[in-house]
Design a protein around this nucleic acid. Structure first.
Length: 259
DNA sequence: ATGGTTGCCTCGCAA
């Protein structure tokens, strides 16, 4: 019965004490980590390995960077999202572990919308869609977790009106996100909790955390076979309230044993 | 209220 977590840590080096303490107390079997903000060789492999995790890391200097941690063996690691060899951002990692194909992603933010960053975001989502098609064709159960930088619906934002033209929420972004779901995937949190507010990100600025002005932008998308195995999906708000917190907090997914 | 914060490791950019 693996528990999988996704957490944008906003620098694994700056966050190391928080990350280690949380890994010890929450003890997820599998962790998808985003924005590690270091090169692969600089990832704190010894400290995290000491807690019983195997590792797969795709790092990058200063920005981005993703990692996959698992207490179970990790096999068939895929580094990077296929479809554009010229894309040097470290934003995607995928491997087989715990009976599932598991992908961890850091989808581009896309702001400002008028810059080249927004078309890059949309193109990245198209590449993700192509990857999902290929994964569905394999027939193996899979989970895609991460920082999607997408606010799926108004109830996932403290003030949707103020975010109407933002790359995280504008209609074109939400449509593209729904295209992914319409391939046959299930968004775990909202499916299990149809009418709850549960943010996963609060800006560092303007007292967003104490005022609970948050966004729900970290998600788990499940293949049909994985969706059939869902036991729970929850947001762990505790790490966001700690000193030296990341601006994101972890989302947890528990699945039954894969068939 | 056109503000405000954090991380990187530069002296601005990304979020």
């Amino acid at each position: 019965m693996p528990t999988i977590a996704t957490w944008n840590v906003n620098s694994v080096k700056a966050r190391l004490p928080n990350v280690l303490e949380w890994l010890r107390s929450a003890a997820p079997d599998i962790v998808l980590m985003q924005e590690i903000k270091c090169e692969t060789e600089a990832f704190p492999a010894l400290e995290i390995g000491d807690l019983g995790y195997n590792l797969a890391v795709l790092g990058q200097k200063s920005y981005n960077g993703v990692a996959l941690l698992s207490k179970l063996p990790i096999e068939d690691v895929q580094l990077g999202l296929p479809g554009n060899d010229g894309d040097l951002h470290a934003r995607y990692i995928e491997a087989t572990t715990g009976g599932y194909r598991v992908g961890g992603l850091y989808l581009p933010n896309g702001n400002p919308v008028a810059s080249e960053k927004y078309p890059y975001k949309l193109a990245w989502m198209d590449r993700l869609k192509a990857r999902i098609r290929d994964l569905l064709a394999t027939g193996q159960p899979f989970v895609l977790g991460g920082d999607y930088n997408v606010i799926p619906a108004p109830e996932d934002c403290y003030d949707p009106k103020a975010w109407e033209e933002d790359a995280l929420y504008r209609l074109e972004t939400r449509r593209k996100f729904r295209e992914l779901l319409h391939l046959g995937l299930t968004e775990a949190y909202r499916t299990l909790h149809p009418s709850e507010r549960a943010y996963t990100f609060w800006d560092y600025q303007a007292g967003a955390w104490p005022l609970d002005k948050g966004l729900r932008i970290d998600h788990f998308l499940l293949s049909p076979q994985a969706a059939d195995k869902v036991i729970s999906c929850t947001v762990d708000r505790e790490p966001r309230g700690r000193p030296k917190a990341s601006d994101h907090t972890p989302v947890m997914l528990t699945l039954d044993e894969a068939a």
